[in-house]
Design a protein around this nucleic acid. Structure first.
Length: 145
RNA sequence: GCGGAGGGCCGGAUGGCCGCUUUGGCAGGGGCAACCUUGCCGGGGAGGAAAGUCCGGACUCCACAAGACAACGGUGCCGGGUAACGCCCGGCCGGGGUAACCCGAGGGAAAGCGCCACAGAAAACAGACCGCGUUCGUUGAUCGGACGUAAGGGUGAAACGGUGGGGUAAGAGCCCACCGCGGGGCUGGCAACAGCGCCGGCACGGCAAGCCCCACCGGGAGCAAUGCCAAAUAGGGACCGCGCGCGGGGCAGGUCGGCCCAGGUCGAUACCGCCCGCAGGCACGUCUUGGCCCGGCGGUCCGGGUUGGCAGCUAAAGGGGCGGUGGUAACAUCGUCUUUAGAUGAAUGGUCAUCCAAGGGUGGGCUUUGCGGCCUGCUCUGGACAGAAUCCGGCUUAUAGGCCCUCCGCGCGU
RNA sequence: GGCCCCGUGGCUCAACUGGAUAGAGCAGCCCCCUCCUAAGGGGCAGGUUAUUGGUUCGAAUCCAAUCGGGGUCA
């Protein structure tokens, strides 16, 4: 009664497959990984970007030669956002928004980088924050096709 | 009641849903193993400053080793506390405040060097610009010379003791009283220092956060220290040491030598020293046998590569509560109970609701001449400074608001 | 996270060690020279010496704290 995660990962794109709640949750948890190296951040910055009121989103489709699978996401806040408390708070809200939106709207095989902005990332209502991320993902996926 | 001073404490609360990290147990999967991974259940998960990195330590590596001097840096009234400190406690002195109390890098300026602009006669040896006085030229005035003097003058941050009296030609510690200064004495105190009386006659300006002197302390670097593993690049370069190229090194056996040595000789009271040295022993050296192993080795620096993992890593001079003892106190000590984040693009949360603090607006009531104050209803805003990064003890800086204790001054009442 | 260095006109630097006038070049404005411009010459303005406090008669300088910027270390 415990199928392996392979089929969920391969179909992972934008197919509107009818998935049970348990299956979609499982797919999200095993596919979202975190960007850690500076090289990945720089490559994502050179690819497409989309700004919204509360954040800047950078996205890049990985090459087929790269071994990583699933959706990868990174979070960045510069010193312009504020002191360490403000930066950590902005990154936490971005992380929660990504956890809520990316498994539904993100594409497998892509890298995303979410950049916090001074003030707005911390003060914007959470539903609007999630809306901003979904809007940016639509704009980024559209011209890439 | 108003105003003020000192000290201590807290740093929103509860719940629902969804998450992160660490740890324990159980079960499953992978792996030879170390271990990795999935699910369920349970436990833990930022601060008083985590900050600044200004001091002091623990710990690790390097250097040197017995310590000390020199150099450099730091500290600086006295005594105590502490693992240590530039920290803390108590005391002294000076300044401020009516007071509670607060502030002070607070050793030495007769060890020496240096500096004190401008102004002023003169800025550190003392001297004399205007003055004051005597006398001479010249009797009076004026002017000039000689001599005495330093009271008064202006300048300056600072002017060679101050005030009063005597004294004098004019003056002056020239003399006297008080104050200041210096020296030595007695008393109290561990000491810094204070008090008392004596003497000396003013001889002694300031700056040491200028050099310096004195006393004390300090080897340097820092967890990105350090050790190990994996991956990857290069199979490099320079210097030094050892070894040497038909031969070298190591292990094993043997020979010879060396050393130790029961014992003996000589000197010596003895300890002991010197010499010889059989047997025995040897982590020693040489030579040899050619049985086995290695194919140059070690160190420092440069260059190149990797930016992965593990250990260090969190329980220690630990903190806190209560009680006892010593101490004025800081603190020490004893008993008992309790508590204890370990992340690494970096967790400790996201979101919603309610309540409690706080502020603004507005309605009503009470009080007041008025400003204003108190009670209550509705609504809006909405939590200060700020995030561990090896760990402790301090200091400094930031901080909405609230609570508690002690003390001082004024007013009122008793 | 540790360690180190630096803050002077709009810009680049002096003056700091050794205390008393904050100066130079470029840039800006005005004038002269030229038919005009450039170059050249003259003049002017522009500084809380990063901030605060202390030592001193006197601080850009000495001392302490704070703020800001930069570099370096596996």
């Amino acid at each position: 009664m415990t199928p392996p995660e392979a089929p969920a990962q391969t179909t992972g794109g934008n197919s509107p497959a009818v998935l049970s709640f348990d299956d979609s949750k499982r797919r999200a948890e095993c596919s979202l990984t975190v960007l850690k190296t500076r090289k990945d951040f720089l490559r994502a910055a050179r690819a497409g970007r989309q700004g919204t009121a509360s954040m800047m989103v950078q996205a890049r489709r990985r090459l087929d030669t790269e071994a990583e699978t699933g959706i990868r996401v990174g979070f960045t806040c510069s010193k312009k956002v504020g002191n360490a408390v403000a930066r950590n708070r902005a990154k936490r809200r971005l992380r929660e928004a990504a956890r809520a939106i990316l498994p539904e709207k993100g594409l497998s095989g892509w890298d995303y980088v979410l950049i916090g902005r001074a003030g707005a990332t911390a003060s914007r209502p959470f539903d609007a924050l999630k809306g901003d991320l979904a809007y940016a993902l639509r704009k980024l996926h559209d011209p890439a096709k």
